[in-house]
Write a protein that binds this DNA or RNA. Sequence first.
DNA 1: TTAGAAATGTAGCCATAGCTACATGTTATG
DNA 2: CATAACATGTAGCTATGGCTACATTTCTAA
Lengths: 154, 154
Amino acid sequence: MARRSKTAPAVRKPAAARPAEVQASALRRTRREHATETAKDYVEAIADITALHGEARAVELARRLGVTHVTVVRTVARLQRDGYVSAKPYRSIFLTEKGSRLAEESRQRHEVVVAFLRSLGVPEEIAQTDAEGIEHHVSPETLAAFKRCAASRR
Amino acid sequence: MARRSKTAPAVRKPAAARPAEVQASALRRTRREHATETAKDYVEAIADITALHGEARAVELARRLGVTHVTVVRTVARLQRDGYVSAKPYRSIFLTEKGSRLAEESRQRHEVVVAFLRSLGVPEEIAQTDAEGIEHHVSPETLAAFKRCAASRR
DNA sequence: TTAGAAATGTAGCCATAGCTACATGTTATG
DNA sequence: CATAACATGTAGCTATGGCTACATTTCTAA
């Protein structure tokens, strides 16, 4: 079977488009972001729950995140290891300074994305849902563009 | 320590916002989507490489996806198990009918997202990068809104 | 005050998705 | 046509992030 045909370039699509290296680093970034998504989702939820109920318990986190309490417990342990929360056995979960900062950033970012989608005419509930997935992958430039666009359509 | 204070609603934030269940199902959806992201990234890359070189080899896939060949080999095995590609040891990788369909859908979706971001004034390279992360989390409604918006700004 | 309900913790399973190190197959070329 | 370069495969490690089943702790209410 022919090796990468350096002599006969085969098909030759018009747009050589993104060179392999560029795409590779974009995908690497996406994977890297994915690693912090969980932390963001958790601190955001912890902040929400604390605001609503005065404290965040694992059971409520599990309900809101759509996982079992076991998953919550393990993930919270990781968040504690990484300095986002403090927690003691059988007690509530609290955000650290670092965790609060991340939660606030996440909340703002979520707001911008939702407001933007809403301004495009996407129904509220779908905007909320899509934002959960999109918000973690928006660069500062794109976030700024979202803000501008939403403002200009208001 | 007070249990979820059913008697004293504590803080009471103005926007009760998304109820726990809604957010939970949104996050569940995001996780579900994540599971198919890999498949989409791979079939898209395989389609690209095949168009450019006439065939897709694991080494080139690894380069483009930013992972080692070992990861590619294992993932391709999974894609084969799931019916997206056919492959024989030490040979090229080919898309099945199902894989081609997924690749074409992914390509179109990627195009729409990139064109949209571009239309917002996001620089080409950043648009490409962000699209890699965003494209997997856009509902049909939002995708349609992207199309409309990009068209109206042209 | 104590029993049962609710919450939390622990053990251990699974799949995905990365990796390094090493083994084997394929191909190009001297 | 043999060998070196390259591609592919395999073994086995790590981490995340789901899960069920069962143990333990805490809290509520009879």
